[in-house]
Design a binder for these strands. Structure first.
Lengths: 258, 258
DNA sequence: CTTTTCTTTTGATCCAGATCAAGACCTGGA
DNA sequence: TCCAGGTCTTGATCTGGATCAAAAGAAAAG
């Protein structure tokens, strides 16, 4: 399944190790042997082109996907046909966690640009995580972090006025980019204004106006999809969201969607 | 820690088994031996009285809690002091999952009435779930279900007008009560109007008005905290929320908070 | 039983942000 | 190079639900 062509052991061994993101999507502190095992179950697949689906709502669940490059959005379709964007996902993040329980995808994942992912068959991962304690622990923590993140997003949606929501979104994005080694204060939005608005529970026009207003206030600089954060502290102050719990010990790595 | 007094083996063995809810909070299909092991790590503790905290925001995480009877609400406090109610939790549900990642509670849990819980030290549970495959799988599924539920709630908050939110909440409650063997169409709200409003991102006055209007429409009958659903289908139609994914195979048990 | 306090209901007003409308700007295809 | 079909911005209006205000029930306390 995972490895058809014949390759040297050292080549196998380095697949995950050479990925600059493996500490994010997968556990820290695994020995070479463990990493090797992990590597063996991962399927690499051709990149997903912009607009293509990685998986679709209601499809049978079999794998988690770790994003290596590019980005995707996930969304559900309401019974009335309306779409609801759930999240935007960056390199180093793991998607599909919500489908484990029902064994069926609860949302669709579509690439926002050319995106490459590692496919991780979940039954193999489950087996492996029984053998590798650190892996099991990491998975629990990842899922927990996702729960915490979603609860934070619920809070944002329930209480905050639109300004705060958008600031919160931008700060969140910035932090996630930083975590993965990209520039924290300068990045490209891969989602359209419409998608961002949808995700934050507001109208596209409002996003447009707010970006303009943030720019006028000297908080950010916008040029189409390109965002530069000029005043992170000021933006943070507007966001004033669920403070990122520093997390006590170890990882604190993960954080999902926006 | 968990068992100071001397008791017979058969007594130990039945603690979880005799609990009518163990299939919900803990895995189905465990043998007696496994159930016994599980039982050994669970601490019973005196009931939490109404208004008492089970745990508080920022407190160190050590255990999950399975609710045996009663109910709790969980909520976070914003930096501005505002509370945001995250969920209401019923017997058979497991709370604390959001704290695994950061090792610190991301919300406070307070009893809405006298409530008894089983405390499950998470490090023991983690160890045990390496030994018992079914347990590990169950935990993954529970956490996944929680993620899915939270995403559903995000959708409700982001898109739906107030009518739909409340209908959705009532239907959700009804389903959860049914799942645990209580009457599906007649129950008591243990949260105040204010808490419900807060959780659904609206004003208390709106809840009040909507309950009245639902009653006028003959959908429900309200008497203070007591709710009777007269027209489940009609209410469902208004809710029109993320259809409960039937889940493919096995469990489909869990579903968390409202 | 009476008083105090908390919760809920009901009514009147107001406003944040949606919706509607139209124009400007990209981007890609022929 | 030009055209067609997005995507984004900007302005004007409208409205769902919040907020304000006050009364009416419950429940708890004295």
């Amino acid at each position: 399944m995972s490895r058809e062509r014949v390759i040297s052991l050292s080549e196998v061994r380095t697949q995950c190790q050479k990925c600059s993101l493996y500490q994010l999507c997968m556990p820290m502190g695994l020995g070479d042997g463990d990493l090797n095992k992990l590597d063996k179950i991962i399927k690499r697949r051709r990149p997903v082109e912009k607009g293509e689906f990685l998986f679709r709502l209601d499809q049978d669940f079999s794998s988690l996907y770790a994003i290596r490059s590019g980005s995707l959005k996930t969304y559900t379709s309401q019974s009335d046909g309306q779409e609801q964007v759930i999240g935007m996902h960056l390199p180093g993040e793991l998607i599909g966690l919500d489908a484990i329980g029902s064994q069926r995808h609860a949302c669709s994942a579509v690439a926002l640009e050319t995106t490459s992912v590692c496919e991780i068959p979940f039954d193999h991962l489950e087996t492996l995580s029984r053998e590798i304690p650190g892996l099991q622990q990491h998975l629990f923590r990842l899922m927990s972090a996702e729960i915490q993140h979603d609860q934070c997003h619920m809070t944002v949606l329930a209480r905050m006025p639109v300004e705060n929501r958008l600031a919160s979104f931008l700060i969140g994005l910035s932090e996630r980019y930083k975590l993965r080694g990209y520039a924290a204060n300068e990045f490209n939005l891969s989602m359209s204004r419409g998608d961002i608005a949808n995700m934050l529970g507001m109208a596209m026009e409002t996003i447009s106006r707010l970006l303009g207003s943030f720019q006028d206030q000297g908080l950010i600089q916008v040029e189409r999809k390109h965002i530069r954060i000029l005043d992170p502290a000021g933006l943070q102050a507007i966001a004033s969201n669920c403070r990122e719990l520093p997390g006590k010990p170890a990882d604190s790595s993960s954080s999902h969607s926006a």
